Amino acid sequence: MLDDRARMEAAKKEKVEQILAEFQLQEEDLKKVMRRMQKEMDRGLRLETHEEASVKMLPTYVRSTPEGSEVGDFLSLDLGGTNFRVMLVKVGEGEEGQWSVKTKHQMYSIPEDAMTGTAEMLFDYISECISDFLDKHQMKHKKLPLGFTFSFPVRHEDIDKGILLNWTKGFKASGAEGNNVVGLLRDAIKRRGDFEMDVVAMVNDTVATMISCYYEDHQCEVGMIVGTGCNACYMEEMQNVELVEGDEGRMCVNTEWGAFGDSGELDEFLLEYDRLVDESSANPGQQLYEKLIGGKYMGELVRLVLLRLVDENLLFHGEASEQLRTRGAFETRFVSQVESDTGDRKQIYNILSTLGLRPSTTDCDIVRRACESVSTRAAHMCSAGLAGVINRMRESRSEDVMRITVGVDGSVYKLHPSFKERFHASVRRLTPSCEITFIESEEGSGRGAALVSAVACKKACMLGQ
């Protein structure tokens, strides 16, 4: 009897593995994704193909990295998701002549009506938060230079001027797309009239992360975010950046690689679950690469896999709870928690219980395998993109072996128990001629924006502006 049951459990697990095998990517698959990513990057950089390229390769006008001589107080704003952060950054000489960066910050959550109302409502709310922060720190009387981390696709015309191309991540505030974001912020500050600010720089969160990590390690020339969304930036040779005049030196390019796949480059790798996630998203047909990796989508992918296993009578005796059938019910943090389970399955059992399920031991094991399959594919897909960037940098610099540091931020990278190990191992397999160091950014977005502002202020002083 026991043997029969054991055989049935083994057969069930084997069927589960057959279904989950769809998520496995072979090294040849990853090399294919990497080569296609490089081709799209090239198209994004070139003037004649930029418009139709899915990977936009947006110039950021960040050319210099901090040298350690900029000092002063800077205000930093960070808008990239449902939370908005205001930070005071003091850049100065530390002990023994070292450079020191001290920060104080406060988080504000953005109400739904500000995210989806008008641009005026959104930026009025942001300036209200700045006003509140300055009151708390008794700094209303000071006109501070301000660095703005704005983590949406922007076409820069200068370091302090950028046109919002399109909202992502659930934002829909009308009247912002096609307009200068810094102008919208300046107008809102003017409307309030109770404080003055000098907006000197606007950067993407990947750029802010790279600059913040450069402060720790001067070989950091790539910034990457794996959180709600997924994106990367890197220092490109100016001669390859056709959208900006000049051939000397390097400029940081914001790849906006989340949109890779929007022209069909990933079609052969998309599964039924991916198509369902895409169809029910706020932007169907867009940001397809990001939807395979980002935390906004990972939990939902797992939920759809679990429903398939229920329908195949391989999980929960073929019956799903009402909660499990509800879109968004299986949160991405559950994926991390399930994979963090120590082996007694308590954590998995508790999560499934909150979803109205009474799982068996085998159910718990199957749910864990589903989570591992989805998150491992995410790590491997992400590795193909980064390997594409790094191999490109090595080739354009004609280096036999390139040493490089990548600064990384984002909740999936930082909080998932195995993502970074799987990701690092896969990147290294795909970049055999590179020695890569990964560092995690601390308060990256805010500190990085302030350091970019410090560079901009120093330049302005040198130019006598």
Rank of each mutant, 00 (worst) to 15 (best):
L2T: 09
L2C: 09
E9W: 13
E9T: 09
A11M: 14
E17M: 13
I19V: 14
I19T: 07
L20E: 06
L20R: 08
E22Y: 06
F23D: 14
L25T: 09
Q26A: 10
E28I: 13
E28R: 09
E28L: 11
K32E: 13
K32S: 12
K32I: 03
V33F: 06
R36A: 12
E40V: 04
M41P: 04
R43Q: 09
G44P: 00
R46Q: 05
R46V: 06
L47F: 12
L47C: 14
H50K: 03
H50A: 04
E51S: 14
K56A: 11
M57N: 04
M57I: 02
L58A: 01
P59S: 01
P59F: 00
S64V: 15
T65A: 14
P66N: 14
P66G: 15
G68V: 14
G68E: 13
E70H: 06
E70I: 15
V71F: 15
G72D: 06
D73V: 05
F74A: 11
S76I: 02
G80S: 00
T82D: 02
N83T: 03
N83P: 03
N83F: 03
F84P: 00
R85M: 02
L88C: 09
G92I: 03
E93S: 08
G94P: 15
E95I: 08
E96S: 12
H105Y: 10
Q106P: 02
Q106E: 11
M107A: 08
Y108L: 00
S109A: 08
I110T: 05
I110G: 05
P111M: 06
P111Q: 08
M115S: 07
G117S: 13
T118P: 00
M121H: 07
F123R: 02
F123L: 01
I126S: 01
I126D: 00
S127N: 00
E128N: 09
I130N: 01
I130Q: 00
D132E: 11
K136R: 10
K136V: 07
H137Q: 13
M139Q: 09
K140N: 02
K140R: 09
K142I: 04
K143P: 04
K143M: 02
P145E: 11
P145W: 05
F148Q: 01
T149V: 02
V154L: 06
R155S: 05
K161T: 09
I163R: 01
L164C: 01
L165G: 01
N166V: 05
S174M: 02
S174A: 03
S174F: 03
A176R: 01
E177S: 00
E177Y: 06
G178R: 00
N180T: 05
G183R: 05
L185S: 00
R186K: 15
R186E: 03
A188P: 05
I189P: 00
K190R: 10
M197E: 01
D198I: 10
V199M: 00
V203I: 07
V203Y: 04
N204Q: 03
V207T: 09
T209Y: 03
T209N: 14
S212A: 05
S212M: 03
H218P: 03
Q219Y: 14
V222Y: 01
V226E: 02
V226C: 05
T228K: 01
N231Q: 00
C233W: 04
M238Q: 10
M238P: 01
Q239P: 15
Q239T: 15
N240W: 12
N240K: 13
E242C: 09
L243V: 08
L243E: 13
E245S: 13
G246H: 02
G249L: 06
G249F: 06
G249R: 05
V253C: 05
T255F: 02
W257R: 08
S263L: 09
L266Q: 14
D267M: 15
D267L: 10
L270W: 07
L271D: 04
Y273I: 09
Y273G: 10
D274S: 04
D274K: 01
D274Y: 00
L276V: 11
L276Y: 14
L276D: 14
V277A: 06
V277P: 03
D278E: 06
E279W: 13
E279K: 15
S280A: 09
S280D: 09
S281T: 11
N283W: 13
P284D: 06
G285D: 11
Q286I: 07
K291E: 09
L292E: 06
I293F: 01
I293R: 00
G294M: 06
K296E: 15
Y297E: 03
M298T: 15
E300M: 06
E300C: 07
L301V: 08
R303V: 05
L304G: 08
V305A: 10
V305I: 15
L306Y: 07
L309F: 05
V310A: 11
E312I: 11
F316N: 14
S321Y: 08
Q323E: 13
L324T: 14
T326R: 11
T326L: 12
R327A: 13
G328V: 12
G328W: 11
F330E: 03
T332G: 07
F334Q: 14
F334L: 14
S336W: 00
Q337L: 10
V338Y: 06
E339R: 04
S340T: 09
D341L: 08
K346I: 08
Q347C: 11
L352F: 07
S353I: 08
L355N: 13
L355D: 02
L357F: 08
T361H: 14
T361D: 05
D365N: 11
D365Q: 10
I366D: 14
R368E: 10
R368I: 09
A370F: 04
A370Y: 02
C371H: 02
C371N: 09
C371M: 07
E372Q: 04
V374W: 03
S375D: 00
T376V: 13
T376S: 11
R377W: 01
R377Q: 02
H380M: 09
L386E: 05
L386G: 01
A387Q: 07
A387Y: 00
R392C: 08
M393D: 00
M393V: 13
R397D: 05
R397E: 07
E399N: 14
D400L: 10
R403Y: 10
T405Q: 12
G410M: 02
G410S: 03
S411D: 04
P417S: 12
S418P: 08
K420M: 11
R422C: 13
F423N: 01
F423C: 10
F423P: 07
A425M: 11
V427K: 01
R429D: 10
R429M: 10
R429T: 14
L430E: 05
T431V: 09
S433N: 12
S433M: 07
I436V: 11
I439C: 10
I439V: 07
I439E: 12
E440P: 06
S441Y: 12
S441F: 00
S441P: 14
G444A: 11
S445F: 00
G446A: 11
R447P: 01
G448P: 01
A449G: 10
A449T: 02
L451C: 01
L451V: 03
S453I: 04
A456T: 15
A456L: 15
K458W: 07
K459V: 02
C461V: 14
Q465A: 15
